[in-house]
Amino acid sequence: MANTVVEINNLVKRYKELIALDNFSLKINEGEIFGLLGPNGSGKTTTINCLLSLLSYDKGEIKLFDEKMHPSRRDLKSRIGVVPQNVAVFDELTVYENVEYFCGLYIKDKKLKKKYVEEAIEFVDIADFKKFYPKKLSGGLLRRLNIACGIAHKPELIIFDEPTVAVDPQSRNRILEGIAELNKNGATIIYTSHYMEEVEQLCNRVLIMDKGKKVAEGTKDELKGMIKNTESIVVNVRRLSEDAINDIKELHHVYDVKNTNGTLTVKCSGGKHNITHVSEYFEKNGIDYDRIYSELPTLNDVFLEITGKELRDKE
C-alpha cells in the first residue's frame, strides 16, 4: 500500500463570515498526480495555503508525510516544492540567480546546489535565457522560471497552483509534459486548476471542489461513472419535426433530447455506442443530416451535473 503524503481532515477556514473551507478532507498517496479542480473562488488556493501553513485555519488537521504540519516544521517544508499561482521571482536577479537563490534556501552544499540549478534550468528549457532578467522574459518563459525555482531542490511533494494561467498553448503543453516527467521521476504532485482538460490529461486522481466543499473525488472514470450521462450524440440536422424528436426520446438509453439552431443533442445513459441507434433512426425515416458524432462526458459534465453550473466561464 502506498504511503500517504498528504492528509487533510475536516478542515474549516473562515474569512470573517465567509466559510472558505467547510469540513474539507482529502488524502493523497505517494506517486500520485492529484488534481484539485474547481471554479475560481472554490477554495483550491486556500487549501494549498493551509497545507503549507501559510494560512491559519479554524478547525481540522493537516498531516504531511504522516506528521502534523505547522509553521515551524522546517523538516517537512524541506521536502516540499511550491510553484505558486503568480510568478514569484526577484526582478533584480537573473534567471540563473533566481533559481540559485531559491534552491539555496533548501540546499546547503554548493556543488550539489550548482548541479540542481543547472538541471532545473535544463528541465524547463530556459538555458538560453540564464543571464536574462525576468522583465525581459515572455509570459511562458516566466512561468517556466517560476517552475524551475519551485522544483530545483528536487522535492518529494510538488504543489502546482494553477501554473498555466495566461500561458500560450505551446508553453502549456511543455509545462504539462514536464510535470508528468517530474512524477515519473518519483515526485508526488498536487495540481490545482480550473482547466478541466489539463486535469483530465495529467491527473491520476481528481477532487472536485466548490464553495469550500468536496463535490466528488476519484479517478477520472470513477467520477464520470458518478453521473447519469455516459454519452452525448450530436447531430447537425437542418429540419426535424416534433414527432421525430419525440421518437428519438423513446430510443434505448436516451434520457434527454435538445434541438437548438440545427444541432440536436441526444443524451444517453448506459452504454457507449448509442450513436448506432440514433443514426439508424435517421436513415430508416429518411431524414437527412450533415454530421453525427459522439461525445464522452468530461469532468465539466461531471461538475455541471453535480453542481448544476459550469466549471468555468465560457471563454
Binding site: N49, L52, L54, R74, D75, K77, S78, I80, V82, P84, N86, V87, A88, V89, F90, F102, L105, Y106, C149, G150
Partner: peptide
C-alpha cells in the same frame, strides 16, 4: 507570505 509573492515562496521554505 502576506506581503509579496516572493514572500510566500520564502515562507514555504525551511530557511531560518
Amino acid at each position: 507570505a502576506n506581503q509579496s509573492e516572493v514572500g510566500k515562496r520564502v515562507d514555504c521554505s525551511p530557511i531560518n
